[in-house]
Design a protein around this nucleic acid. Structure first.
Length: 433
RNA sequence: UCCCCGGUAGCUCAAUUGGCAGAGCAGCCGGCUGUUAACCGGCGGGUUGGAGGUUCGAGUCCUCCCCGGGGAGCCA
C-alpha cells in the first residue's frame, strides 16, 4: 500500500510511490499516452499513463472516465518541466470511488454568470474558485494571527439581536418567540461592552443587511472582522487598521502566491499599494479630490461608487477618509471636539476601485452625549438601555472598526464581483444554492 | 425601488430588410506516445423563456408577464 499524500506535499516525495485521493478534473489523450488532471483540494496534478508503466485495466479506465469521477491514483512522483506545476505522477494504478452517470454541467469552457451561480455548489470545484477560496482562507488566518500578536482577545457577538445598529430599512426581521428580533447587522455595540471587560477584542462574524442592492460590491450576508479597543482614540484606531491591512496583504502574498498566479493577479502592484504609509485625507479634502477627478458631489453627500473610484484612482494606494459630517454617520460616533459637525471616524477605501473595506470611529463615551445623539437620530432609548448603561460605569475613550472580508478578498484576488469571494453568496434574488 | 441590456441545441453565441434555425465547444464513434481549455475525421442534438397580437409568413415587429445580467441609491 502506497503512502497517501496531498498534492501540495508532492515536492517532498519526488521519486517515491504515493497515492493521491481526489477527483478527475480533466483528461487528454494521444493514443498510447494519456494525461489525467487530478485535483484533491490542495492543488492540481497531472498524471501520465502509458502502456509501459500503467496497469492495463487502469490505462483503459483513463480513456473512459468522465469529469469529476472520484478516484485514487497511485504512481511515482517526478519533477518534469512539461507538467503544469512542475511535478507529475507516473501512473501505475487507478481505482475509482464513484463514477458520474451524467455529464458534469461545468465544462472547462466559458459559461454565463447566471448558469454558474445556479451551479455554485459545483462551480467552487473549478480552478479559479479554488484559488479565490484559498486566498479567503489566508485572509481569515491573517486576521486571527494579527490580532493574536497584538494582544487581542477573540470573542463572539450575538447574531439574533433586538436592537438595530444601522438604519431601519436594512434589517432582516424574525419572530423570536413572539417578540420582534433581527439578524445582526454588526456586532459593534456588543464589542463595545466586551472591550470594557477584556480591553482589546475582535471577532469575525456574519453581518446581515436586507438592502435591495444589486451591485458587484454587495451581499445580503457578508463577513466582517470587527475590533473594539478600550483607551484607543481616533489616531490609535487608524494606526491599528493600517497595520492590519498591511499584515493581511503581506501574509497572503507569502502564503498564497500560487493561487494569486492562477488568478493572474499583479502581485507587484499589490505589494506597491501597501508598501508606504496609506493616504489620509479629511472628508472635506476628499470632496475636492473627487471634484478634481471630474465626479460631481457636494459637501454633505455620502460617497457613491464613482466618488470612491475617483479617490482610489487618485491615490493608487489605500486611503483613509476622516471626519465625515456627523449627520451622514451613525449615532454612536464621537464628535470632533474641535468641530462638532464632524465625527471622529474614517473609512478606508481600497485601491483599484474595490470601494470601502473598513469603516470605523471613536465612539461616544459620555452618557449625556449619547442620550443627545439618540434623540437627534430619533431613536428610542428603551432598546439601547444596556448600551447607555456602559457609559455609567467607568466609561473610557474607545474606538473600533469593521473590515469587510469579501471586499478585502476581492481586492487582493483582483476578482471583479464579490459574489466569487464567499462559497455561497447571498444576494438579492439569490437564495439557492 | 429605479434605469439599461439580454433570454435561440447541454454550454457560449450567430441568424442581413420579417422569408429554409446555424457554428464552436461538450457528448458518442474512430485516429494519434508529451498533452497543456490538446488536436484531426465522422455522428446525433431545437416547443427560439411564457401568453396574446400584427402579417401570406415572426427568433426578428407590438403588448403584458416570468427569469437572468449590469448599474444607481445605501453600505462593509
Amino acid at each position: 500500500m502506497s503512502r497517501v499524500v496531498y498534492i501540495e506535499e508532492l515536492p517532498r516525495h519526488v521519486g517515491e510511490e504515493v497515492a493521491i485521493r481526489g477527483w478527475l478534473f480533466n483528461k487528454r489523450s494521444s493514443g498510447k499516452i494519456r494525461f489525467l488532471i487530478v485535483r484533491d483540494g490542495t492543488g492540481f496534478l497531472q498524471c501520465v499513463a502509458t502502456v509501459k508503466d500503467t496497469e492495463p485495466e487502469s490505462f483503459e479506465l483513463c480513456e473512459r472516465l468522465p469529469q469529476e469521477t472520484s478516484l485514487i491514483v497511485t504512481g511515482t512522483v517526478r519533477e518534469d518541466p512539461r507538467a503544469p506545476g512542475g511535478y507529475e505522477l507516473l501512473l501505475k494504478r487507478l481505482t475509482t470511488v464513484q463514477v458520474p452517470k451524467e455529464q458534469f454541467p461545468i465544462a472547462l469552457k466559458e459559461h454565463g454568470v447566471g448558469f454558474l451561480m445556479d451551479h455554485r455548489h459545483l462551480w467552487i470545484r473549478m480552478r479559479r474558485q479554488f484559488a479565490i477560496l484559498r486566498v479567503r482562507d489566508a485572509v481569515m488566518w491573517a486576521i486571527r494571527e494579527f490580532f493574536k500578536r497584538e494582544g487581542f482577545v477573540a470573542t463572539e457577538c450575538p447574531i439574533i439581536v433586538g436592537t438595530q445598529v444601522e438604519g431601519t430599512t436594512t434589517l432582516f426581521p424574525l419572530d423570536y418567540f413572539g417578540e420582534p428580533a433581527y439578524l445582526s447587522q454588526s456586532g459593534q455595540l456588543y464589542l463595545e461592552a466586551t472591550c470594557m471587560a477584556l480591553g482589546k477584542v475582535y471577532w469575525i462574524g456574519p453581518a446581515f443587511r436586507a438592502e435591495k442592492s444589486k451591485t458587484r460590491r454587495h451581499l445580503t450576508e457578508f463577513w466582517m472582522a470587527e475590533a473594539e479597543m478600550a483607551y484607543f482614540d481616533h489616531g490609535d484606531n487608524l494606526a491599528l487598521q493600517e497595520r492590519l491591512v498591511r499584515y493581511i496583504v503581506e501574509y497572503v502574498i507569502a502564503e498564497r502566491k500560487r493561487e494569486l498566479e492562477i488568478l493572474e493577479r499583479d502581485i507587484e502592484a499589490l505589494k506597491r499599494e501597501v508598501e508606504g504609509p496609506f493616504a489620509r485625507v479629511t472628508y472635506r479634502e476628499a470632496v475636492e479630490v473627487i471634484n478634481s477627478e471630474g465626479v460631481p458631489m457636494e459637501y454633505g453627500d455620502d460617497f457613491g461608487a464613482p466618488a470612491e473610484d475617483a479617490l482610489s484612482k487618485h491615490f493608487g494606494r489605500p486611503v483613509f477618509v476622516e471626519r465625515f459630517p456627523a449627520r451622514i454617520k451613525p449615532f454612536y460616533m464621537k464628535r470632533d471636539p474641535n468641530d462638532p459637525s464632524v465625527a471622529l471616524c474614517a473609512d478606508l477605501i481600497a485601491p483599484e476601485g474595490y470601494g470601502e473595506i473598513i469603516g470605523g470611529s471613536q465612539r461616544v463615551d459620555s452618557e449625556e452625549e449619547l442620550l443627545r445623539q439618540l434623540e437627534e437620530y430619533n431613536l428610542p432609548r428603551e432598546p439601547y438601555q444596556w448600551y447607555i448603561d456602559l457609559r455609567k460605569w467607568g466609561s473610557v475613550p474607545h474606538s473600533g472598526f469593521g473590515l469587510g472580508v469579501e471586499r478585502t478578498v476581492a481586492w487582493i484576488t483582483g476578482v471583479r464581483h464579490i459574489r466569487e469571494t464567499i462559497p455561497f453568496p447571498r444576494m438579492l434574488d439569490r437564495l439557492y444554492p
